[in-house]
Design a protein around this nucleic acid. Structure first.
Lengths: 233, 233
DNA sequence: TACCATAGTGTAAAAAAAACAAGAAGAAGT
DNA sequence: ACTTCTTCTTGTTTTTTTTACACTATGGTA
């Protein structure tokens, strides 16, 4: 066992007042043709019973992203999801208990993973439509609004959207996903032409029957790595 | 004088360990057809004499943006510049003195304002080409790299670039600005067509003589407010 | 085998982006 | 006053990208 490196606690920097720092995560999924966000009912002293974004205090020996992953796993039981830093909110009085700065992340979870059974920790977590959710504690509405804008924007010029689908999916499902998030309808032929031109997906030999009609071809992403390439900035 | 509101210091949240939080600013300007960044020589105990991004510890009663503005003014003597939150860096050991999380901002200063005489505070600040600057302390190279990517990206789909020019400017100056930041040449006629179609600038009646040749028409932005409209996300 | 519902596909028009060159204007030198 | 020098200014054609739009294919069920 390696002894963890420590800091120079005698340094002058420790004379500056320190704020609390939390990580809050906006976790999106698409379920039943609806864009949903995960909210938790607060147990902590302040604002008990109110709904809020899942979050928690960072630990000093983990990076911000590690904090986010830890909290994400605690609250949802899932790992290995798309996670991206969103923005840092730090109004002095956004929390009456103290100066609390929160680094907001957004996460995308595909509908398969999302079905994972809730642990005890997760008991009071619930999915809400982004168009219809209860009042939120702190400035979490602002955080949610902002992340929704960002998600829509990134959907247009990156491939983040793919993170919300299971490994194999039909083109209609993919299109529906875009339509649900962007809240507008898209032309089927143009959409397929676009996807084809991006050269990111390939046919499988499987099909999927969804009702009493012609079954749809299943597709898969060509490469997982490739997905993040265009996500810089 | 109004008594400042305070926090509930008895709350449980104060039992969680707190990191130090700083704000670092990547201040860009364009000078002599070069994209430059402002760096300061460190006076503090650690890494004394090394170059770093201007920055400082936040105060608990000011917002992050207020902190950034304060530090910006201390270091450059200028106010009212374009300022945008970039990213928050928080690797546990990015600073050996303690856990220090830094919220990075980037600022754009036009070449006129930039000429402001340095105060004592600013004595050891210096502009460097983004292609040729000294080794930086901490993870500031990473911060600078990231902000450069972001600046280039935003230049393509927003009007941030206009922040780097004085009130009145020629179209050639505007084009040169884009060329310098994007590090590529642009077609003069297409560039002007584009600018015209954006409908953001208007002719003035003045011209500017730059050498022994035909003088160029000066333009100005139609509205300052308008500039930020497309800067969401 | 007829019906139902969605899957799957191509072409033409419009808009946006890229490629490309010549005359205009002012200053300086003759 | 006119020639020269250097940058300013402007338009058309081609290519690429985006949008609009409608019919046939397929498998299951009645």
């Amino acid at each position: 066992m390696v002894e963890k490196p420590k800091w120079d606690m005698t340094s002058d920097i420790h004379k500056y007042p320190k704020p609390s720092v939390t990580v809050d995560i906006v976790i999106f999924t698409v379920q039943n043709d609806e864009l949903r966000v995960l909210l938790v009912k607060r147990k902590a002293d302040l604002k008990k019973g109110e709904w809020a974004l899942p979050g928690g205090f960072i630990r000093l020996d983990e990076s911000l992203e590690e904090s986010a992953k830890r909290i994400l796993e605690q609250k949802t039981g899932v790992k290995d999801v798309y996670l991206e830093q969103l923005y840092t909110f730090g109004d002095p009085f956004r929390d009456s208990r103290g100066r609390v700065i929160t680094v907001a992340y957004f996460a995308l979870i595909d509908s398969e993973k999302m079905k994972i059974k809730p642990t005890e920790e997760v008991a009071d977590a619930q999915w809400f439509s982004v168009y219809n959710y209860p009042p939120l504690a702190f400035d979490h509405k602002k955080v949610l609004d902002y992340s929704l804008t960002r998600l829509r924007s990134k959907l247009e010029y990156t491939t983040v959207g793919f993170q919300l689908l299971p490994q194999k999916f039909t083109l209609t499902e993919l299109q529906k996903l875009y339509e649900v998030i962007l809240a507008k309808t898209l032309d089927k032929r143009n959409f397929r032409k676009k996807i084809a031109s991006l050269n990111l997906v390939e046919q499988t030999k499987e099909t999927k029957m969804e009702g009493v009609h012609r079954p749809a071809r299943l597709y898969k992403f060509k490469s997982k790595k490739f997905l993040l390439e265009s996500d810089v900035v």
